[in-house]
Simulated assay, not measured.
Amino acid sequence: MDDMSTPGRWHLRSPVDARGQRVDPWQFKKGQPLDIEGVIRFPVNPTGIALEFTLASFLIPVVHRRVVALFERLGLQKEVQFIPVEVEGQTEPWFTLNVLQIIRCIDDARCEEVLYWLPEDNRPDKLGQYRNVAGLKVDPAKIGDAHIFRPWGWKVVLIVSEHVKRALEQEGITGIKFLEV
């Protein structure tokens, strides 16, 4: 999660292209490599302390180059794609973290609450998918050896292994908060 408790922190807004036009934010949750043409920019409002991990609008992860270097040292290049971006007011390299795996692993029985899209919701495109998940819990047996992924049906969440969590904490990456699932 994005640690919102940092006083004076920045907030990244919706991504735009070089002309200031909105970039499709949902493409970053598909779990597949992206071929991005042109520059993606993230406006900052309010400005403040830059964090090395931030969830921009639409929960798009934006990370500092230190996160990229750490993931490379951990050998996670096949599980993520780092897309260079520009962040308003910053000269250092920043990246969106595009997670390349979606795993069907939510343990409905252990979650606090799970709601599904139903026929009466009049959303045939979402029928049978998760509408809400509270108190998310996953089935570890379904995860295998994945170190970072999004759960199928609830792609607003990023899940990392204990190994990655410890590495991020030891590296002192700012802006990140963990919840056990």
Rank of each mutant, 00 (worst) to 15 (best):
T6M: 05
T6C: 04
H11Q: 10
L12K: 04
P15L: 10
V16R: 13
G20E: 08
R22V: 07
V23F: 07
D24E: 11
D24G: 06
D24T: 09
W26H: 15
Q27V: 14
F28V: 04
Q32R: 12
P33F: 01
D35G: 11
G38L: 04
G38C: 10
R41M: 09
V44Y: 06
I49C: 07
A50R: 13
L51H: 03
L51T: 09
S57A: 13
L59W: 10
P61W: 01
R65G: 03
V67Y: 00
V68C: 02
V68H: 08
A69Q: 15
F71V: 01
R73Y: 04
R73F: 05
L74H: 07
Q77M: 14
Q77V: 14
Q77R: 05
V80N: 00
V85Q: 11
V85T: 03
V87K: 00
E88F: 00
E88A: 12
W94L: 10
F95D: 00
T96C: 13
V99D: 00
C105Q: 03
C105M: 02
C105A: 12
A109V: 14
E112M: 12
W117Y: 15
W117E: 02
N122C: 07
P124W: 09
D125F: 08
G128S: 07
G128A: 04
Q129M: 13
Y130V: 01
L136E: 01
V138R: 04
V138W: 03
I143C: 14
A146E: 13
F149L: 06
F149K: 04
G153E: 03
L158E: 13
V160E: 00
H163W: 10
V164E: 10
K165Q: 15
A167L: 10
I173Y: 02
I173V: 15
I173H: 07
T174S: 15
